[in-house]
Amino acid sequence: MDGSLGIGFELLPNGAFSKKNMLLQIHLDSSSLNDFKICPRRYYLSIVYGFQPAQESVHLTFGIALHRAVELYWTYRLDRQMPHRDAMVEVVRETLKATWDYNLNRPWQSDDKAFKIKNRYTLVRTIVWYLDKYQNDPVQVVRVGNDDRLAVELPFRLGTGYKSATTGEEFVLCGRLDRIGELNGARYVTDVKSTGHTLSEYWFAKFTPDNQFTIYTIAARSVFGVDTTGILVDACQVVQSFSEFQRGVVSRSDEQLNRWHHDLAFFLEQLEKCAYDDDWPQNDSACGMYGGCPFRQVCSATSANSRELILRREYKRRVWDPTFERMDY
């Protein structure tokens, strides 16, 4: 088997990729970069060709809806000056809409066993409890930019300083920050994460090092000019019978940020080599990590024909374009 799929799938048009080489991603978000760092083959399947398991990820759907709810809430409160209760009711309305299957005219459902814990009911419960808890949030949203706007829902694009050796284009990091706020004189990017695990300092420790939070810290500093030392994480523990919340700080030092940027060059070189050669090696040490790679059965196939069959039967395709809308959670 060579490094490419070697089968009859067309590349889908994607604005994040170079026009000179459709296999080379120029605009990278944390999810894209993360996938490549885990395994070039995984990245090739999920980002370059846009495959994802036909059965949606309950964790992803839940996370996106929770993020969106918190964003909406603060927009209603800060931009529209809505009272807490009114804003919360509107957020619940939008959440129920976002989790309604309009094709089948029924609520969001899934066969995933995680759906027993992360479902529509526990989502709304988590949102109501979270918003009640933080309605008088001591975090004060700061203002950024020349237009002095409130720092909520901040899309960013940030040149890395590294150029493609084959196309001459500069690699760009992109994504979107939830909020930048001030707490006890310090400024932070804020983010919301949901988990089934007990919340403790060990849970927060998993974000250091972490690709996504490092990129967010760099973006806050470089794009929005906010002198921040890291991320304020609102962790939501979601279990069947209750939801619980804990706030923690994930810090980054200058040295850590500089080192990450230095290391980025290595991965971009690898990315470019894979794209130029159309050769995407497997990292077979990562197949069992993170709950198991979603493409394990593809890589386990013994021939190109069976690989194609599995991809057509068990996966669907979408365009992962971080320049288009928020994709990373």
Binding site: R85, M88, V89, V92, R93, L96, V124, R125, V128, W129, D132, F242
Partner: peptide, 12 residues
């Protein structure tokens, strides 16, 4: 919607 919110608050 109000009923849903109230239910969740009562539950807590």
């Amino acid at each position: 919607l109000e009923q849903i919110v109230t239910h969740m608050q009562d539950l807590r």
